[in-house]
Amino acid sequence: MIRLTVNGRERTYAAGPGDTLLELLRREGFVGVKKGCEAGDCGACTVLLDGRAVNACLVLAVKADGASVVTIEGVADGGQLHPVQEAFLDTGAVQCGYCTPGMVLSAIDLLSRNPSPSEPEIRDAIAGNLCRCTGYVKQVEAIERAAARMRETR
């Protein structure tokens, strides 16, 4: 058993010693955490672990014991979307949507530390999130737009 705070709610979860955080989260219904390669190559399973974006497939669940996890399900505030989510919708940065949860969380990690990222910094931040649909053009634009919006409302 491990203790995890997932999207603000702390409780204990059954975890086998060899389970990855990806498996645990999906099993527990956080299916917005996507499985794309199970090898850290695609970033579809990105979650925030104590605030930092990580490949959930590369983290043993036991390593997360006591940690705080944010999945895509925990990003919107009730019905109110996060500015990054809004910007993804407005710019057309979502196509199939399979990489979107991971991409959004990587962007949130970036913007939490760097409110005015340059384009190369944005590209760096999502370097581990592969997308086959968009060519990244609109996603970079979305993150720029979200950053601007978050700076205004700060």
Binding site: G40, A53, V54, L58, D109, D124, A125, G128
Partner: peptide
């Protein structure tokens, strides 16, 4: 270090 893997992996 910026050229190592991805931020997602560097965070772990």
């Amino acid at each position: 270090f910026r050229q190592v893997a991805s931020p997602l992996q560097r965070n772990v």
